[in-house]
């Protein structure tokens, strides 16, 4: 292991390092924000799926007692009409 002080750093390397760090930090922040927004989208899609499930369950339940009208009233978008 070389002690850090003995490694030769050329003049101005701090600024060079800082500049590249700025670039990568910017990229990281942007990707972080994108990931965060993606989480929000994922949550909304989850909500959608849950709502759809509920609607389907409800229509199935109603379908047992009163077959045709209830099922026609709440068709899930991708459900094939019976």
């Amino acid at each position: 292991m070389t002690p850090l002080a003995s490694v030769h750093f050329p003049d101005g390397s701090g600024y060079v390092l800082a500049a590249y760090l700025v670039f990568f930090l910017l990229l990281l922040i942007y990707l972080g924000i994108t990931a965060y927004r993606l989480l929000g989208l994922e949550r909304r899609l989850g909500d959608l799926t849950r709502q759809l499930d509920e609607a389907e369950a409800k229509s199935a339940l109603d379908g047992a007692s009163a077959p045709a009208p209830a099922a026609a009233a709440v068709p899930a978008p991708d459900e094939v009409p019976r």
């Binding site: 050329p10 003049d11 101005g12 390397s13 600024y15 060079v16 500049a19 590249y20 670039f23």
Partner: peptide, 9 residues
Amino acid sequence: GFSQKIFYV
């Protein structure tokens, strides 16, 4: 010197 390397980014 070395600081010119910032040029590439």
